[in-house]
Computed example of a mutant assay.
Amino acid sequence: MQLYNKLSAQERAHLIDKAGKDRLTISFYQYYKIENPHILRDHLFIEWNKLNVLGRTYISNEGINAQISVPSENLEALKNQLDSVSFLKECRLNIAIEQDNKSFLKLTVKVRDKIVADGLNDETFDVTNKGVHLDAENFNKLLADPNTICVDMRNHYESEIGYFENAITPDVDTFRDSLDIIEAQLKEHKEDKNLLMYCTGGIRCEKASAYYKHKGFKNVFQLEGGIIEYTRQVKNKGLENKFIGKNFVFDHRMSERISDDIVANCHQCGEPCDTHVNCANEACHLLFIQCEKCAEKMDACCSTACQDIIKLPIEVQKELRKGIPNSNKIFKKGRSEVLTYKK
Rank of each mutant, 00 (worst) to 15 (best):
Q222P: 09
D274S: 14
D299L: 13
A208F: 11
I228V: 14
V234K: 02
C291D: 08
M197E: 10
S209P: 00
M197I: 15
K246F: 11
E224M: 14
N236H: 12
Y212M: 10
N281L: 02
R257N: 08
C269P: 04
M254P: 05
C284F: 07
A208P: 08
Y230M: 10
H267D: 04
Q290K: 07
Y212D: 06
D251Q: 01
R232F: 03
A210T: 09
M254I: 10
S255I: 08
I262S: 05
A295M: 03
K235P: 02
M298H: 11
A208L: 10
I227V: 15
S303F: 00
N219I: 05
H214R: 15
I203S: 07
A295P: 03
D274Q: 08
K237A: 11
K218D: 06
I244D: 02
I289K: 03
N247G: 04
F250C: 05
R257W: 03
V249I: 14
R232K: 14
H252G: 07
G226E: 03
M298C: 07
E206V: 09
A283Q: 15
S259F: 09
E224P: 07
F248C: 02
K215L: 15
Q268P: 06
A210P: 08
I227Q: 06
I228H: 02
L286N: 04
N219V: 04
D260Q: 12
N281P: 02
V277N: 07
Y212F: 15
H252Q: 12
H214C: 13
F288D: 00
H252R: 15
S303V: 03
H252S: 11
N219D: 10
G226C: 02
A280F: 10
I228F: 09
S259C: 04
I262G: 06
T231Y: 13
V220I: 14
C205A: 13
N219P: 05
E292S: 14
V277K: 08
A283N: 15
H267A: 04
A280H: 12
K215R: 15
I227C: 04
F248S: 00
R232N: 11
C279Q: 07
G225A: 12
F217Q: 01
D260R: 02
S303N: 01
N241E: 04
Q268S: 14
H252A: 09
N247V: 00
F217A: 08
A280R: 08
C291F: 04
I203W: 03
L223D: 03
G216Y: 04
G225F: 02
Q268N: 14
K297L: 13
C205P: 06
F248A: 05
R257A: 08
H276L: 12
N265A: 14
R257E: 05
G238R: 01
E256Y: 01
K237Y: 10
C302M: 10
L286Y: 01
E206N: 09
I203Y: 00
R204K: 15
E206L: 12
I203H: 05
A210I: 14
I228E: 09
C205E: 05
V234R: 05
E206D: 12
K293T: 14
I289W: 01
C266N: 05
A264Q: 01
N236R: 11
F221G: 02
N247W: 03
C294A: 01
C284N: 03
M298K: 10
I244C: 04
K235M: 14
K215Y: 12
E240F: 09
E292D: 15
V263G: 06
K246M: 10
M197R: 11
G238M: 00
H276N: 09
D274G: 01
